[in-house]
Design a protein around this nucleic acid. Sequence first.
DNA 1: ATTATCTATAGATCTATAGATAATGC
DNA 2: ATTATCTATAGATCTATAGATAATGC
Lengths: 209, 209
Amino acid sequence: MTKHHNNKEQDILAAAKVEFLEKGYDGARTTSIARIAGVTHAMLHYYFKTKDQLFERIFHETIGTLVKSILDVFTQDEMPFKDRMAKALEMHFEVIRENHLLPLFMIREVASRPERFSMIKNVISSFAGNLLVTMQHDIDLAAKRGEITPIDAPTLLLDMLSLNVFPFIIKPVFEAATGLNLNAESKFWDQRKKENIEIIMRRLTPSQA
Amino acid sequence: MTKHHNNKEQDILAAAKVEFLEKGYDGARTTSIARIAGVTHAMLHYYFKTKDQLFERIFHETIGTLVKSILDVFTQDEMPFKDRMAKALEMHFEVIRENHLLPLFMIREVASRPERFSMIKNVISSFAGNLLVTMQHDIDLAAKRGEITPIDAPTLLLDMLSLNVFPFIIKPVFEAATGLNLNAESKFWDQRKKENIEIIMRRLTPSQA
DNA sequence: ATTATCTATAGATCTATAGATAATGC
DNA sequence: ATTATCTATAGATCTATAGATAATGC
C-alpha cells in the first residue's frame, strides 16, 4: 500500500480538477466530485481532509502551468528580437489552447477571494520581476539596433497576454451567442494565432518617418 | 404606495448588484444582500420571490450595458475609418473603465451556467450580426480607398475587445501579484487606452511595400 | 494491524415561507 | 384593507466525521 494506493486518490484529483475548473470553488460540490471520480463521498475527506485543501492542490497546479507558460516566453535562445517574440507568442498561445479553462478559473478565484492569492503572491511577483527586467533589457538592445520601436516591457507583455488569452476567456459567451462550438473549429484558433503575431509584429515595427 | 415603495426595493437591487458582481451567483448570499441593503432578509423574497429572479434582474441589466458599449462602437457619424475606430476604442474603453466588474461577471456566469445565457442569445446574436455586417462594409470601403489594409470584421472586433477588456479582467491578479491598487492609478489606464489605440491604428495601416 | 472503503448521520449554512404586526392610502 | 416589514422557523443542501467493515502487507 502507501505505494499504489493512489489510483483512487488520482481519480479524485482528476475529478476535482474538472469540477473546480468548470464551476469554480463556490459552484463545485464535493459530492459531485466523488460521483465523477466514482468513489464514495467519504473517500474524498479521507484523502484530502477538506474541500479547501483539495482546492488548494488544484489551484497550485494551475498557477504553476500558467506562470510557466509566461516564463517560457523569454527562455528563447538567440534570434532577432522580433522572431523571438513571434515564437514566444506562438508557444504561449498553444499552451493556453491546451489549457483553455485555466485563465478564467484563476482570474475568477482571485477575484472572488483575493486573500487566497496572497500565499503565492511572492512566487509570481518574483518571477514576473525578473521576466520584466530581462525583457526590458532585450527590448532596449533591439531598439538601439533599430530592429524595433521602443516600448515598455510591461506594456508589451500585457498586449501579448490580452491578445492570446482573451479569446479563450470570451469563448463561452461567443459560443452561447453564435451557437458555434469553437473546440471543433481549429481553423478559427489557427487564424487567431496568426492574427496575434501579425498585430504584435506591426506594433514592434519601427515607424518609418 | 405602489408609487414610492421602491426605496427599499432599489436598495436591495443596488446591494444585489454589488454582491453578485463581486462574488458571482454561487458565491452570493441572500442574507448578505439583505445586510448590505439594510433590510431584513424576508424583504428580499417579498420583492423578488427568489434568489434566481433577483439575479436575472441584475444579469439583464449588465448584459444591456455591455452590448450597448459594443454597439456604440459603430454609431459614429462620418469620419475617416481610422478616426472612427480610434474614437470607438476610446469610448468603449471608458465604458468598461466605469463598469470594470461587468465583463468578468458576465463571462463567469455564462461559463458556469451556459443554459442561463440561451434566453438572451437571440438578442445578442441579432445585434452582433448587424454590427459585423455594417463593420465589414465600412472596412471594405476604406480598404478600397487605400486608407487601411483589408481585414475581417470579426477579427478586428475581437482584437479591439481583447485589448480593451482583458486588462480589466486580469486586474485582480495583477493587483494581487504586485500589491498595487490600480483604481488609484489613473495614469496606468490612460496609458493603456493610448496603447490600445496605437496598436489598432498600426494594425489598420496599409503595409508599405 | 495498518490502510482503504463504505454506511449513516451530525452539524452548519442557506433559501424560502408562514404568520404576526406595523404602516399607508382611501 | 392593502402594502410593507419583522420574527421565527421549516426545509433543502452541503461539508465533514464517526464508526463499522473490507482489503492488504508483514
